[in-house]
Design a protein around this nucleic acid. Structure first.
Length: 199
DNA sequence: GTACAGATTGAG
DNA sequence: TCAATCTGTACT
């Protein structure tokens, strides 16, 4: 089994395609105190500004908070909601295009060489966007981090193949205000995976 | 300067 | 079903 780090070319593709390809196939590796925190991506949501009313970049809006959404694919866009939960997004597409993917849920993976450590570190089940960031111990210090260059966080292809029939597409969550955009089936998750977020 | 809403969560 | 909790944004 080969572990291949995802490079720029993976992220600089149509956002919906990247959102689906991220599913299940890839692992987030997070170095923390010389240990690794790992999880398999099982749920994603695509945000495609400036057209998408649910996007923070709707109408081409640029703020100090959302500017990472405009970076070339492969950068981290992280922000706080409800004053207490971080949301991990990955920018996609070209520089200047505000497109990103919200990572909503992970399946925790116990790595073979540090089984005990990982289990102790991660009592949190990353089955929701806020909990996922607590699991990975992410915060604002990761804002704008380049996943293709960072030494502390990146994604890997570990050779897991996902069939089309295993991917379920539904409406996105928590964006009912976005009118017709709220109806788009831009949320993707793995069929029968128990770590997919509820509600 | 102040007011207010939000890509959520877990407890009731 | 509800409230915790804080930052960016849109006002005065």
């Amino acid at each position: 089994m080969t572990f291949k780090k995802l490079e720029r070319s993976f992220y600089v593709r149509p956002t919906l395609k990247v959102a689906k390809n991220l599913l299940g196939k890839f692992i987030i590796i997070r170095k923390w105190k010389s240990k690794k925190i790992i999880g398999k991506i099982v749920e994603t949501e695509a945000y495609i500004g400036p057209e998408d009313k649910a996007s923070h970049a709707y109408g081409g809006k640029v703020t100090k908070r959302n500017r990472a959404e405009y970076l070339i694919g492969g950068h981290i866009y992280i922000y706080l909601v409800y004053g207490m939960y971080w949301q991990l997004n990955i920018s996609t597409g070209f520089e200047g295009r505000p497109e990103c993917i919200l990572i909503r849920a992970l399946e925790p993976i116990v790595s073979s060489n540090s089984k005990r450590t990982v289990l102790v570190l991660n009592k949190i089940i990353p089955n929701g966007p806020g909990k996922l960031c607590r699991y990975l111990k992410l915060d604002k210090s990761f804002y704008g981090e380049d996943l293709t260059k960072s030494k502390r966080i990146w994604l890997e292809d570990r050779g897991i193949k996902i069939k089309k029939s295993e991917i379920i597409a539904t409406k996105r969550i928590g964006i009912d205000y976005a009118e017709e955009w709220a109806k788009k089936s831009w949320r993707f998750y793995l069929k029968n995976n128990s770590f997919v977020s509820k509600r």
